[in-house]
């Protein structure tokens, strides 16, 4: 059995690969957004309210990508 046949025989749902790909980007994005917010709040705690709103908008945009990516993978990837 050569390598190509072995690769072709891998079975399972391709949606799980889609989930992995859809998770990478938003994970990095949310990590950066939250990390920078922590930095900002640590420097100026009285600005927490404004920074929270900006963080919330940042998270909303990055998680939108995750939602669409995961939904695409699991609804259409069989």
């Amino acid at each position: 059995m050569d390598a190509t046949t072995v690769l072709a025989e891998i079975t399972g749902s391709i949606a799980t690969v889609g989930y992995g790909l859809a998770a990478i980007g938003p994970a990095i994005g949310v990590g950066i957004v939250v990390g920078k917010t922590i930095e900002g709040v640590a420097r100026q705690p009285e600005l927490a309210g404004r920074l929270q709103v900006l963080m919330w908008i940042g998270i909303a945009f990055t998680e939108a990508l995750a939602f669409i990516g995961i939904a695409t993978a699991f609804i259409f990837g069989f």
């Binding site: 908008i57 909303a60 945009f61 939108a64 939602f67 939904a71 695409t72 609804i75």
Partner: peptide
């Protein structure tokens, strides 16, 4: 389901902004 999910996500983002 997928299209309404996308519409909901985009609508929610617009409201947030």
């Amino acid at each position: 389901l997928f299209l309404s999910l996308i519409a909901g996500v985009i609508g929610s983002l617009i409201v947030d902004v």
